[in-house]
Computed example of a mutant assay.
Amino acid sequence: MLHQILNYILNLHIDTDADHLKRLDGQRLNLFSFSIGVILIFNSFRDLWFGFENYFGVLFILGVTSLILFFFTKVRQNSLACLITIELCILVVFFFSSTSGFENGMSLYYFPLLTSPLFIFNTRKTVKHVIIIFATVFILFLISHYYDFRIFSIGKMGNLEFLKNQRLITFIMVFVALAIIGYFIMLKHFTVLELYQKLLRSEKIISDMRTKLNRKDDLDLENLVKLAINDDIAFIPKIKSSFPNLYANLMEINPNITSEEFKLCALLKLGFTTKDIAEYNHISVRTVQTKKSRMRKSFGISADTDLYKWIDTL
Protein backbone atom coordinates (compact mmCIF):
# COMPACT_ATOMS: atom_id res chain seq x y z
CA MET A 1 0.00 0.00 0.00
CA LEU A 2 2.72 2.48 1.03
CA HIS A 3 4.79 1.43 -1.98
CA GLN A 4 1.86 2.18 -4.31
CA ILE A 5 1.34 5.60 -2.71
CA LEU A 6 5.04 6.41 -3.06
CA ASN A 7 5.01 5.37 -6.72
CA TYR A 8 1.96 7.56 -7.31
CA ILE A 9 3.69 10.55 -5.70
CA LEU A 10 6.92 9.96 -7.61
CA ASN A 11 5.43 9.35 -11.05
CA LEU A 12 2.47 11.75 -11.14
CA HIS A 13 2.46 13.44 -14.57
CA ILE A 14 5.91 12.02 -15.37
CA ASP A 15 6.34 11.25 -19.06
CA THR A 16 7.61 7.67 -19.34
CA ASP A 17 9.22 8.52 -22.68
CA ALA A 18 11.15 11.43 -21.22
CA ASP A 19 14.91 11.51 -20.89
CA HIS A 20 16.16 9.47 -17.90
CA LEU A 21 17.63 12.55 -16.17
CA LYS A 22 14.46 14.60 -16.72
CA ARG A 23 12.35 11.76 -15.38
CA LEU A 24 14.45 11.51 -12.21
CA ASP A 25 14.41 15.29 -11.82
CA GLY A 26 10.61 15.32 -12.13
CA GLN A 27 10.27 12.55 -9.56
CA ARG A 28 12.42 14.44 -7.06
CA LEU A 29 10.43 17.63 -7.56
CA ASN A 30 7.20 15.66 -7.07
CA LEU A 31 8.39 14.24 -3.77
CA PHE A 32 9.83 17.61 -2.70
CA SER A 33 6.68 19.68 -3.32
CA PHE A 34 4.45 17.01 -1.78
CA SER A 35 6.62 16.69 1.35
CA ILE A 36 6.84 20.45 1.91
CA GLY A 37 3.08 20.82 1.41
CA VAL A 38 2.25 18.10 3.93
CA ILE A 39 4.68 19.52 6.53
CA LEU A 40 3.28 23.06 6.19
CA ILE A 41 -0.32 21.89 6.52
CA PHE A 42 0.58 19.75 9.54
CA ASN A 43 2.23 22.75 11.22
CA SER A 44 -0.75 24.96 10.40
CA PHE A 45 -3.08 22.67 12.35
CA ARG A 46 -0.55 22.56 15.19
CA ASP A 47 -0.69 26.35 15.43
CA LEU A 48 -4.47 26.27 15.28
CA TRP A 49 -4.46 23.87 18.24
CA PHE A 50 -2.44 26.40 20.27
CA GLY A 51 -4.73 29.24 19.28
CA PHE A 52 -2.65 30.95 16.59
CA GLU A 53 -5.33 31.51 13.96
CA ASN A 54 -3.13 33.93 12.00
CA TYR A 55 -0.24 31.47 11.78
CA PHE A 56 -2.67 28.71 10.88
CA GLY A 57 -4.07 30.66 7.94
CA VAL A 58 -0.67 31.56 6.53
CA LEU A 59 0.89 28.09 6.88
CA PHE A 60 -2.24 26.40 5.53
CA ILE A 61 -2.26 28.63 2.42
CA LEU A 62 1.45 27.99 1.82
CA GLY A 63 0.93 24.23 2.26
CA VAL A 64 -1.98 24.19 -0.19
CA THR A 65 0.11 26.23 -2.65
CA SER A 66 2.88 23.64 -2.45
CA LEU A 67 0.39 20.83 -3.08
CA ILE A 68 -1.01 22.75 -6.05
CA LEU A 69 2.51 22.81 -7.45
CA PHE A 70 2.56 19.04 -6.91
CA PHE A 71 -0.78 18.19 -8.53
CA PHE A 72 -0.49 20.71 -11.37
CA THR A 73 2.82 19.85 -12.97
CA LYS A 74 2.60 22.51 -15.68
CA VAL A 75 2.43 25.20 -13.00
CA ARG A 76 5.40 23.70 -11.16
CA GLN A 77 7.41 23.45 -14.35
CA ASN A 78 6.87 27.15 -14.93
CA SER A 79 9.92 28.79 -13.37
CA LEU A 80 8.13 32.14 -13.08
CA ALA A 81 5.28 30.55 -11.08
CA CYS A 82 7.83 28.95 -8.72
CA LEU A 83 9.64 32.28 -8.34
CA ILE A 84 6.40 34.09 -7.47
CA THR A 85 5.48 31.40 -4.93
CA ILE A 86 8.84 31.65 -3.15
CA GLU A 87 8.69 35.46 -3.21
CA LEU A 88 5.25 35.34 -1.57
CA CYS A 89 6.63 33.01 1.11
CA ILE A 90 9.47 35.49 1.72
CA LEU A 91 6.96 38.33 2.17
CA VAL A 92 5.02 36.21 4.67
CA VAL A 93 8.19 35.53 6.67
CA PHE A 94 9.07 39.23 6.46
CA PHE A 95 5.69 40.15 7.95
CA PHE A 96 5.66 37.66 10.83
CA SER A 97 9.35 38.12 11.67
CA SER A 98 8.75 41.86 12.03
CA THR A 99 5.85 41.73 14.48
CA SER A 100 7.36 41.07 17.90
CA GLY A 101 11.10 41.47 17.58
CA PHE A 102 13.95 39.29 16.42
CA GLU A 103 13.59 37.05 19.47
CA ASN A 104 10.52 35.28 18.05
CA GLY A 105 12.90 33.42 15.70
CA MET A 106 10.58 33.69 12.67
CA SER A 107 13.40 35.12 10.55
CA LEU A 108 14.99 31.65 10.65
CA TYR A 109 12.48 30.66 7.98
CA TYR A 110 14.51 32.74 5.53
CA PHE A 111 17.12 29.97 5.44
CA PRO A 112 14.98 27.18 3.91
CA LEU A 113 13.62 29.78 1.47
CA LEU A 114 17.19 30.59 0.45
CA THR A 115 18.07 26.91 0.09
CA SER A 116 15.00 25.74 -1.86
CA PRO A 117 15.78 27.66 -5.10
CA LEU A 118 19.19 26.00 -5.25
CA PHE A 119 17.30 22.74 -5.73
CA ILE A 120 14.35 23.99 -7.80
CA PHE A 121 16.17 26.29 -10.25
CA ASN A 122 18.91 24.19 -11.78
CA THR A 123 19.49 25.62 -15.25
CA ARG A 124 21.55 28.54 -16.51
CA LYS A 125 18.38 30.34 -17.58
CA THR A 126 16.95 30.27 -14.05
CA VAL A 127 20.08 31.44 -12.21
CA LYS A 128 18.60 34.95 -12.30
CA HIS A 129 15.66 33.68 -10.22
CA VAL A 130 18.06 32.54 -7.50
CA ILE A 131 19.73 35.98 -7.53
CA ILE A 132 16.33 37.71 -7.23
CA ILE A 133 15.36 35.55 -4.25
CA PHE A 134 18.67 36.13 -2.44
CA ALA A 135 18.45 39.88 -3.10
CA THR A 136 14.85 40.02 -1.82
CA VAL A 137 15.74 38.25 1.43
CA PHE A 138 18.78 40.46 1.96
CA ILE A 139 16.85 43.69 1.43
CA LEU A 140 13.86 42.68 3.57
CA PHE A 141 16.10 41.50 6.38
CA LEU A 142 17.91 44.86 6.39
CA ILE A 143 14.57 46.68 6.54
CA SER A 144 13.43 44.54 9.47
CA HIS A 145 16.75 45.08 11.21
CA TYR A 146 16.47 48.85 10.79
CA TYR A 147 13.09 48.83 12.56
CA ASP A 148 14.28 46.31 15.17
CA PHE A 149 11.92 43.68 13.71
CA ARG A 150 8.87 45.60 14.99
CA ILE A 151 7.27 47.00 11.85
CA PHE A 152 3.86 45.32 12.10
CA SER A 153 1.61 44.26 14.93
CA ILE A 154 -0.93 41.47 15.33
CA GLY A 155 -3.26 40.65 18.17
CA LYS A 156 -1.56 38.73 20.95
CA MET A 157 -3.39 35.48 21.15
CA GLY A 158 -2.57 31.86 21.63
CA ASN A 159 -0.97 29.59 24.16
CA LEU A 160 1.47 31.44 26.44
CA GLU A 161 3.64 28.36 26.92
CA PHE A 162 3.91 28.08 23.14
CA LEU A 163 4.92 31.75 22.91
CA LYS A 164 7.70 31.21 25.43
CA ASN A 165 9.10 28.36 23.34
CA GLN A 166 8.29 29.81 19.92
CA ARG A 167 11.93 30.41 19.00
CA LEU A 168 12.87 26.83 19.89
CA ILE A 169 9.88 25.41 17.99
CA THR A 170 10.72 27.60 14.99
CA PHE A 171 14.32 26.42 15.07
CA ILE A 172 13.22 22.77 15.13
CA MET A 173 10.86 23.30 12.19
CA VAL A 174 13.51 25.15 10.19
CA PHE A 175 16.02 22.43 11.03
CA VAL A 176 13.63 19.76 9.72
CA ALA A 177 12.91 21.80 6.58
CA LEU A 178 16.63 22.29 5.87
CA ALA A 179 17.26 18.58 6.45
CA ILE A 180 14.58 17.68 3.89
CA ILE A 181 15.86 20.20 1.34
CA GLY A 182 19.45 19.05 1.95
CA TYR A 183 18.38 15.45 1.39
CA PHE A 184 16.90 16.29 -2.00
CA ILE A 185 19.91 18.36 -3.02
CA MET A 186 22.27 15.52 -2.10
CA LEU A 187 20.00 13.00 -3.84
CA LYS A 188 20.14 15.09 -6.99
CA HIS A 189 23.91 15.38 -6.76
CA PHE A 190 24.36 11.63 -6.34
CA THR A 191 21.97 10.92 -9.22
CA VAL A 192 23.84 13.24 -11.58
CA LEU A 193 27.15 11.74 -10.46
CA GLU A 194 25.84 8.22 -11.04
CA LEU A 195 24.62 9.11 -14.53
CA TYR A 196 27.97 10.73 -15.33
CA GLN A 197 29.84 7.63 -14.16
CA LYS A 198 27.55 5.48 -16.33
CA LEU A 199 28.30 7.71 -19.30
CA LEU A 200 32.05 7.40 -18.80
CA ARG A 201 31.76 3.63 -18.38
CA SER A 202 29.57 3.28 -21.49
CA GLU A 203 32.06 5.30 -23.54
CA LYS A 204 34.89 3.00 -22.46
CA ILE A 205 32.85 -0.12 -23.22
CA ILE A 206 31.96 1.23 -26.67
CA SER A 207 35.56 2.22 -27.39
CA ASP A 208 36.91 -1.19 -26.33
CA MET A 209 34.22 -2.98 -28.33
CA ARG A 210 34.90 -1.00 -31.48
CA THR A 211 38.62 -1.71 -31.19
CA LYS A 212 37.95 -5.41 -30.69
CA LEU A 213 35.45 -5.67 -33.55
CA ASN A 214 37.24 -3.20 -35.79
CA ARG A 215 33.81 -1.88 -36.87
CA LYS A 216 32.98 1.80 -36.80
CA ASP A 217 29.69 2.53 -38.54
CA ASP A 218 27.73 -0.66 -39.10
CA LEU A 219 26.94 -1.46 -35.46
CA ASP A 220 24.85 0.73 -33.15
CA LEU A 221 26.96 0.10 -30.07
CA GLU A 222 25.90 3.35 -28.39
CA ASN A 223 22.25 2.33 -28.27
CA LEU A 224 23.12 -1.27 -27.43
CA VAL A 225 25.24 -0.31 -24.41
CA LYS A 226 22.65 2.25 -23.31
CA LEU A 227 19.93 -0.42 -23.30
CA ALA A 228 22.20 -2.74 -21.31
CA ILE A 229 23.09 -0.07 -18.73
CA ASN A 230 19.43 0.86 -18.24
CA ASP A 231 18.45 -2.83 -18.01
CA ASP A 232 15.93 -2.20 -20.79
CA ILE A 233 13.73 -5.08 -22.03
CA ALA A 234 14.67 -4.09 -25.59
CA PHE A 235 18.27 -5.14 -24.93
CA ILE A 236 17.78 -8.83 -25.79
CA PRO A 237 16.13 -8.24 -29.21
CA LYS A 238 18.77 -5.62 -29.98
CA ILE A 239 21.71 -7.90 -29.12
CA LYS A 240 20.21 -10.68 -31.25
CA SER A 241 19.95 -8.37 -34.25
CA SER A 242 23.42 -6.90 -33.67
CA PHE A 243 25.11 -10.30 -33.22
CA PRO A 244 22.86 -12.67 -35.20
CA ASN A 245 25.15 -15.69 -34.82
CA LEU A 246 25.62 -15.38 -31.05
CA TYR A 247 22.33 -16.95 -29.97
CA ALA A 248 22.52 -19.69 -32.61
CA ASN A 249 26.05 -20.67 -31.54
CA LEU A 250 25.06 -20.75 -27.89
CA MET A 251 22.04 -22.91 -28.74
CA GLU A 252 24.31 -25.43 -30.47
CA ILE A 253 26.36 -25.79 -27.28
CA ASN A 254 23.39 -25.81 -24.94
CA PRO A 255 19.91 -26.18 -26.49
CA ASN A 256 18.37 -25.57 -23.06
CA ILE A 257 19.89 -22.11 -22.65
CA THR A 258 17.70 -19.81 -20.54
CA SER A 259 16.97 -16.16 -21.20
CA GLU A 260 19.00 -15.20 -18.11
CA GLU A 261 22.00 -17.17 -19.36
CA PHE A 262 21.77 -15.53 -22.77
CA LYS A 263 21.54 -12.09 -21.20
CA LEU A 264 24.65 -12.82 -19.14
CA CYS A 265 26.48 -14.02 -22.25
CA ALA A 266 25.42 -10.87 -24.11
CA LEU A 267 26.75 -8.63 -21.33
CA LEU A 268 30.02 -10.54 -21.32
CA LYS A 269 30.16 -10.15 -25.10
CA LEU A 270 30.02 -6.38 -24.65
CA GLY A 271 32.79 -6.50 -22.06
CA PHE A 272 30.77 -5.70 -18.96
CA THR A 273 32.65 -6.53 -15.76
CA THR A 274 31.14 -8.42 -12.83
CA LYS A 275 30.71 -5.10 -11.01
CA ASP A 276 29.04 -3.54 -14.06
CA ILE A 277 26.56 -6.41 -14.38
CA ALA A 278 25.72 -6.26 -10.68
CA GLU A 279 25.20 -2.49 -10.70
CA TYR A 280 23.12 -2.22 -13.87
CA ASN A 281 20.96 -5.25 -13.05
CA HIS A 282 20.51 -4.18 -9.42
CA ILE A 283 21.90 -7.37 -7.95
CA SER A 284 24.90 -8.18 -5.76
CA VAL A 285 28.37 -9.03 -7.05
CA ARG A 286 28.11 -12.44 -5.38
CA THR A 287 24.89 -13.14 -7.31
CA VAL A 288 26.68 -12.37 -10.59
CA GLN A 289 29.55 -14.65 -9.62
CA THR A 290 27.04 -17.41 -8.86
CA LYS A 291 25.41 -16.91 -12.25
CA LYS A 292 28.81 -17.16 -13.92
CA SER A 293 29.57 -20.42 -12.09
CA ARG A 294 26.24 -21.91 -13.15
CA MET A 295 26.85 -20.80 -16.72
CA ARG A 296 30.22 -22.59 -16.74
CA LYS A 297 28.47 -25.83 -15.70
CA SER A 298 25.64 -25.29 -18.18
CA PHE A 299 28.00 -24.81 -21.13
CA GLY A 300 30.76 -27.14 -19.92
CA ILE A 301 33.34 -24.37 -19.58
CA SER A 302 36.41 -25.31 -17.53
CA ALA A 303 37.41 -23.21 -14.54
CA ASP A 304 40.69 -22.12 -16.15
CA THR A 305 38.96 -20.75 -19.28
CA ASP A 306 38.48 -16.97 -19.49
CA LEU A 307 34.76 -16.36 -20.03
CA TYR A 308 35.39 -13.18 -22.03
CA LYS A 309 37.77 -14.94 -24.43
CA TRP A 310 35.36 -17.87 -24.67
CA ILE A 311 32.40 -15.67 -25.59
CA ASP A 312 34.50 -13.79 -28.16
CA THR A 313 35.10 -17.01 -30.09
CA LEU A 314 31.34 -17.44 -30.69
Rank of each mutant, 00 (worst) to 15 (best):
L118Y: 09
H3A: 12
S35F: 00
E279M: 12
T126S: 03
L24N: 11
Y147A: 06
S298P: 00
R210L: 03
G37P: 05
M186W: 13
K212P: 05
G51V: 06
H13S: 13
F50P: 05
I120P: 00
N78C: 07
V288T: 04
K297Y: 14
N43H: 15
A228Q: 01
L108D: 02
K74R: 12
S97G: 02
N230E: 12
S293I: 03
H20P: 04
T273K: 03
E260R: 02
A278G: 15
L213P: 11
N11H: 10
I277Q: 00
L80K: 12
F272R: 01
R210C: 04
N245V: 09
P237W: 03
F34H: 08
V192H: 14
L31T: 08
I151V: 15
T123K: 13
I311L: 07
A135R: 07
Y247F: 11
N165C: 08
L314K: 08
M106Y: 06
K188T: 07
T85G: 14
D312G: 00
T273W: 01
I205F: 11
H282F: 13
T73C: 09
E203L: 02
F184H: 02
L10E: 05
I133P: 01
D208T: 00
T273E: 06
I139S: 15
L270E: 00
I257D: 01
G26I: 14
F184N: 04
A266G: 08
N249G: 11
D17T: 12
E279G: 04
G37L: 00
M106V: 13
N223M: 01
I154K: 02
R150P: 01
D276W: 13
E222P: 02
K204V: 15
I68L: 11
K212E: 10
H145Y: 10
D312L: 05
L267R: 08
S302D: 00
A303H: 08
